[in-house]
């Protein structure tokens, strides 16, 4: 992940304006088939109607978008959009385990 996409933002103070946040909000909106204006950093999963299966689907899309691997334990603790933004930021910055994302097919070799 290129560093310029996340210009120096600390892991736990997500600004609504930064690019990483915007990308996470967009992914959530697309996955939930909502307009991106309906998804904000303050939204709870309850407000957005996101259930546990939706959460797993969003994590899948985020893993692909940011080329990260989200560990199972992390997925279980996510409850809000802010949790997702913070979690993605930690993984992208290498501040949490599980960032390596390696496939096993021909295209990976």
């Amino acid at each position: 992940m290129p560093d310029e996409m996340i210009p120096g933002a600390p892991a736990t103070t997500a600004s609504p304006e930064d690019d990483l946040t915007r990308r996470v909000l967009r992914i959530i909106a697309e996955t939930q088939r909502k307009d991106v204006s309906q998804v904000t950093i303050e939204s709870s999963f309850e407000e957005l109607g996101i259930d546990s299966m939706d959460g797993v689907n969003i994590v899948f899309a985020l893993e692909n978008e940011f080329n990260i691997n989200v560990p199972d334990e992390e997925v279980k603790t996510i409850r809000s959009v802010r949790d997702m933004v913070d979690g993605v930021r930690k993984l992208v910055l290498g501040e949490a385990p599980g960032t390596a994302s390696v496939g096993h097919g021909p295209a990976a070799s």
Binding site: N57, F60, E63, S101, V102, H104, G105, P106, S109
Partner: peptide, 13 residues
């Protein structure tokens, strides 16, 4: 996706 494209994961659904 996993065998041919070498992607690390399949869709959760």
């Amino acid at each position: 996706d996993v065998y041919k494209m070498g992607k690390p994961r399949v869709h959760p659904m």
